[in-house]
Amino acid sequence: MREEFYKTLSSPIWWGTLAIAAIMPFVLSSYYVHILTLALVYVALASSWNIVGGMAGQISLAHSLFIGIGSMFSAALLLKLGINMWLGLVISAVISGILGAVIAWIDFRFQLGHLSFVLITLAFAEMGSIVVEGWDFLGGASGLLLPKDTGNFLAFQFGGGHGAFWMMLGLAAICVLVNVAILNSPLGYYLRTIRDNEKAAQAIGVNILRYKITAMVISAMLASVVGTAYVRYLTFADPYLLISPVITIEIVLFATVGGLGRAYGPALGALLLVPLGEILRGKLGSTLPGLHYFIYGIVVISVILVTPRGLLPLFERLWARWRGPAVAGKS
């Protein structure tokens, strides 16, 4: 592990930001706490997706599958079999990890190109949603309703609003930290070389299959855990939200707008776009239906055009310019 990781762990800025975020529920109205909680869900999801999509450069559209397993399956285990949701979280994460490994293996075995990988993962995602909608055990098309959140921690309950916010804050922080850790460890180097040039990566000793699988398994398990936490927050396990490929598209969008492959990029994207989308909808949704999507779309397109590599690199450039050319040495 490189020093930078320990620096992050002992950084006052990091802990300060977390502390300020943690007191938000006392400052903001429950509406804004809800928006922030939602943003944190997407921070966690976009950050976990980043390990495969950003660092390894594999645009996986299978992540709705992992989120869906984490949410629908753990909810079904609780409601149909009475399995504690903590255990359900672990079981779902293991299943997601195994599925992730299978997908990564298929990609390697059949030497899929970028586009084929996108399509294969999308096919997996579609299969997942068909299975969920057609299988009563998982709630079918009508979904599953979880028992009321009474704050019983042992039953994976966090007491609604504030508790859910803190739980999501912790989870989002863990997902971002995992990103920082990977980028500062050999795995991060291996994934970046694989993304940039598979053949050349192999020629300098990188075992492509092993690290593609590692990345996919970590990413899938994190997404699944976030899925379980998300469904607990929502209370209603809605298949059209949780196992629909649309949720992956949103994640990819946030990660891309924030900065692919960077530890804080996806988090930044989600923290800006989720509140923007929600607030636009809240303010404009009733006056002129559709207008909020229109404005949201224009914002996203503008960002991509102005800074194709995402907002984080843009902010870094602005910061370097502001600090003066003396410290602007690093690319």
């Binding site: 050999p186 180097y189 291996y190 970046r192 070389t193 993304r195 940039d196 040039n197 053949k199 050349a200 990566a201 020629a203 300098i204 000793g205 990188v206 492959g261 690319s331």
Partner: peptide
């Protein structure tokens, strides 16, 4: 062989790993 988003140090570090 080029690496689009890595520095020369990053690339050689990967080899050294």
């Amino acid at each position: 062989q080029s690496f689009a988003d890595m520095t020369t140090l990053d690339v050689v570090t990967t080899a050294a790993l």
